[in-house]
Design a protein around this nucleic acid. Structure first.
Lengths: 109, 109
DNA sequence: TATAATTATCGTAATATTGCAATAAAAATA
DNA sequence: TATTTTTATTGCAATATTACGATAATTATA
């Protein structure tokens, strides 16, 4: 049916999945890396650097903004995108915490 | 057009995205957590615990196996799934490394 | 060997995602 | 005000994902 049954999962499981889903596209990884490298980017810079059409980049930026990992500052006709440091740390902690579960000696095969 | 242009991204960017994409569904997070909690699970256990149909669980297991984070050991008619500890650590390191980029003082807004 | 138990695969329907051209929107500038 | 610059939105086509019923495949058991 194409629609994820979010209601049968915990809030935490949905939260981890939502974050991972947004990170699950190379363009969005590339956007984050470029913003970090350049400290901040306008949409047009990312279009040039990454090589996808402007509406496509804009769409990816919106998804990154949806989870709060970036924020955009309107400067005239331009929008200056940068990392939201607090949210970045929060997301890093959520993923780090997930992977810090003790799995030692739990192999069966 | 619905198809990701992987060829314009680096191997590393595609690798991070591929991993995150697989983690980007709550059922797969739930499966990993259940396998860890129970040390190992057969498919039927996960069907009962999670509440999705058997073919759906089987499909999610395949995607988790594709990135190597779990492995399955055939035991008679059953398949015993567990975490691949090495790959788990590898994936954790890839994500940790991504989030360890220095973003301090890089806000523009 | 026939049946039961368990998992994988196939086929399909519904929905989501990706990408882009066209265009709208908004602010700066001539 | 008209034009330019820049980004967001809309609409669409192509493909991917999610979910499940039906069924195949495989091994254990009666």
């Amino acid at each position: 049916m194409g629609v994820t049954k979010s209601e049968i999962f915990s809030e935490s499981q949905n939260q981890i999945a939502t974050i991972a889903k947004v990170l699950g596209h190379p363009a969005r990884i590339a956007i984050l890396q470029q913003i970090i490298k350049a400290k901040s980017c306008i949409c047009g810079d990312l279009v040039t650097e990454i090589g996808l059409a402007q509406p496509t980049i804009s769409q990816h930026l919106r998804e990154l903004k949806n989870i709060g990992i970036i924020k955009g500052d309107i400067e005239g006709t331009r929008v200056c995108y940068c990392i939201d440091e607090d949210k970045w740390g929060e997301i890093r902690d959520i993923l780090t915490n997930f992977f810090q579960q003790d799995i030692c000696g739990k192999e069966c095969c």
